[in-house]
Design a protein around this nucleic acid. Structure first.
Lengths: 341, 341
DNA sequence: CTGTTAGCGCATTCAT
DNA sequence: ATGAATGCGCTAACAG
C-alpha cells in the first residue's frame, strides 16, 4: 500500500524523542512508569509534531472504541433535542463519543446489520422501536452492552431500560379533568401502535375513568399517532360521527397541537366547551392557545440516565437497576380550564 | 494479550468457507473477481456466523472511516433538530456515519485537541463558533476536509461554508415594518457578539433604515443574545430608560419569545402598539401570541448542503462552490400588524 | 524505568 | 479466480 499521508505516528514521536514506542504509549495511557525527564520531552515533542493517536489503531489493539451508538427513530423531532443533550453531556463527561443513526422508518434496519454495534462502538442506546427484537437478541447473545430508551425489553431479556412514569401521570391528569372540571366524556388519542408510552397513558386514562365510576365509551378512544395532522383529522372525524365529548387527552403534545387546531376550526371553545390536555411538555406547550395543561417528562434526564446506565454496563459489566423510571409532573396551564397566574 | 472475545473475524468466515481471507475481502469490497460459487458460499457462511467486519481494523488498513464529525455549540437548542436531520439524512444516504460533539461553552476545546478530527473521521462539520481559528488552520494545513456551518472562514482559508441569506431578508422584513406598518422607531436586538448571523441581520436592518431616510438611534440597538431571558430583560431595560419604540426586530425567534413576554408585562399591545418580528421561523413561531412574523431559514437544507459539500471534499478532494448561501423567505403572520388568513 | 516484539482484523500487493 | 504475505498504528506482554 502506498505510504500513508502526512499523519504523524507514535513512531515519529518516539524517534524524535529518542525513546521507544512503548514508552510513548505508556506516557500516553499512564499505563506504566515514565521518568519525569522523558515525560517532559515527550510532551513538547508531541505538541511540536501535533501528534494525535490514531483512533482506529488504538481501537484495534484494545478492543475498545470509547464511543457509543445511538439508534433513533426521528432525529428531527422536537422531542429529541433535550434527549440528545442529556446523552451527549453525560458521555462527554466520561470521555465517550456519540455515534448517531436515525431513521424515519423504524423498519429500515430489519434484516440488515445495524449501523452501530459491536463492530464500531462499545455499546448502544436504542430509542423506542428503533431496535427490533431480532437485533436485540443477537446483541444480548454476544453480551453487548445495550440500554433501551422509552421502551422496556422483552420479558426474556435482561436489558436495562430508562423511561418515564406514564401511567400514574395519565391517571392523575385524567382525574383532574374529572374532579376539577367535571368532565365526563373524555376523548383519548392513542399514539402509534406498539408505542409503549401510549399504552401506559391509555391504561392510566382508563383507570382514572373507572376510579370515578365512569364507563368507557369505545368511540372515545381514537388514533392520534402522536402527530399533529393525524390528531387533527381524528378530532374532525369524531365530530363528524356525532361523537360528543367535553375533553380530550391527546396522548402527547404534538397531537395536542392538531387537536387545538381542529377544535378551533369546529368553533368549539377551549377550555370553555372542551378541556384539552397533553403529555410531554414540549417546548411549544406554553405558547399554544390556550397554554397547554400537560405532563412534564424529564427528557433530558432520560438521556442522562440512559447514558449513565450504558456506561455502567460498559465499564462494570453490570448495572444496578434494570428499570429506571423517571417521575413526571403535571403542569397546569389553561387548556384544561384552570386559570393559573 | 488475552485471546479476543467471541467476535467472529474474517479469518473465521474464510476458514468455514474454505477460502482465503483475501477472497473474503474481495467479496466484501467488490474489489476483485470472485467466482459465483464462492460468492454464494460466502454469503451463507457470513449470515450463519453473523459476521460484521470490524470497523477499526478496516479503518486502519484503508485510512478511511466513513464517518464525519460534527462540532456543535449546543445540541439541545430547538434550532439543531432540523439541522441534524438534514445532516444525518444526507450522510446516511451515502453510507457515512455521524460522530457528534457538542459543548455549551465554545471555548471548551481551545488549546486541546478536538474530539473529532483526522484521527477518527474523514472530515468534519463545524457549526458557527464551535471551531476556533487555531484548529481551523491546523486542519487546513493538513488538507483535512472541513466545512463550516453558519460561519464563513477567515479570509486566508479556502474552506467551504454553508449558511443562509441574512442581510437581504433582514432588510426586507425591516422595510415591511416601515412601509406597510409605518413604523419609525424599530428596536433591534443583537445576537451574541461575533455571531455572524447577527452581524448580517443588523446590517440589513441598518440598510433598510437608511433606504427610507431614517436615521438610526443608537439607543434602539441592544443585546438580546438570541436568548429569551436576555431579550426579556433588554426590552424591560429599554422601557425603563424611557426609550420609545414602535417595533422590535428581535434578531431571532428565541429572543422574540422573550420580547413578547416583556411587552405583555409592560401592557404594550402587539401588534397594535408595537410590531414584533423575528428570524428563523422556529417550531414555536406560529404558536406565539400573536403568531410571529419572521424569516424562514431553511435549516434542514443547511444541514443537507453542508453534508453534501463535505462529502464532495472527502470524495473528490475539491468542492465546486466555496460559499453556499441558502435563500430565506419572509413569513407574514400577525405580530407585525398584518392579518393573514 | 525502558526497549523488543507480537499481534489486533482487515486490505492489498504479488504470485500462481 | 485465488492464496500467501506484508503492513496499517497502536497496546501489551515480556525481558532487561
Amino acid at each position: 500500500m502506498t505510504r500513508s499521508r502526512n499523519s504523524v505516528t507514535i513512531r515519529d514521536v518516539a524517534k524524535k524523542a529518542g525513546v521507544s514506542v512503548a514508552t510513548v504509549s505508556r506516557y500516553l495511557n499512564h499505563t506504566g512508569p515514565v521518568s519525569h525527564a522523558v515525560s517532559e520531552r515527550l510532551k513538547t515533542v508531541m505538541t511540536e509534531l501535533n501528534y494525535v493517536p490514531h483512533a482506529a489503531a488504538r481501537n484495534l489493539a484494545t478492543h475498545k472504541s470509547f464511543t457509543v451508538g445511538l439508534l433513533l427513530s426521528d432525529i428531527g423531532g422536537d422531542f429529541f433535542a433535550p434527549l440528545l443533550r442529556g446523552i451527549e453531556d453525560t458521555l462527554a463527561e466520561h470521555g465517550y463519543d456519540l455515534l448517531i443513526s436515525s431513521t424515519r422508518r423504524p423498519q429500515r434496519w430489519r434484516g440488515k446489520q445495524l449501523p452501530v454495534g459491536p463492530h464500531n462502538t462499545d455499546g448502544i442506546l436504542g430509542f423506542a422501536d428503533s431496535l427490533d427484537e431480532t437485533h436485540l437478541h443477537q446483541l444480548a447473545e454476544r453480551h453487548f452492552p445495550v440500554v433501551l430508551i422509552h421502551r422496556t425489553p422483552p420479558a426474556d431479556l435482561l436489558v436495562p431500560s430508562v423511561t418515564v412514569e406514564n401511567k400514574a401521570a395519565a391517571r392523575a391528569i385524567t382525574s383532574h379533568l374529572i374532579e376539577v372540571h367535571h368532565r365526563r366524556r373524555i376523548l383519548f388519542l392513542q399514539g402509534p401502535p406498539e408505542q409503549e408510552d401510549s399504552y401506559w397513558r391509555e391504561t392510566g386514562y382508563r383507570q382514572a375513568l373507572s376510579d370515578h365510576g365512569l364507563t368507557l365509551d369505545p368511540a372515545l378512544v381514537r388514533r392520534g399517532d402522536f402527530e399533529q395532522q393525524v390528531a387533527y383529522e381524528a378530532i374532525l372525524q369524531a365530530h363528524r360521527e356525532g361523537v360528543v365529548f367535553d375533553a380530550v387527552f391527546t396522548g402527547d403534545d404534538e397531537a395536542a397541537v392538531g387537536t387545538l387546531a381542529a377544535l378551533q376550526k369546529l368553533h368549539l371553545a377551549v377550555p370553555e366547551e372542551i378541556s384539552v390536555v397533553g403529555f410531554d411538555d414540549q417546548r411549544m406547550a406554553p405558547y399554544l392557545t390556550p397554554p397547554l395543561t400537560t405532563v412534564r417528562a424529564p427528557t433530558e434526564l432520560v438521556g442522562h440516565y440512559a447514558a449513565q446506565r450504558l456506561l455502567e454496563l460498559i465499564q462494570g459489566g453490570a448495572v444496578e437497576e434494570l428499570l429506571t423510571l423517571l417521575p413526571t409532573e403535571i403542569i397546569i396551564r389553561r387548556s384544561c380550564g384552570c386559570s393559573p397566574s
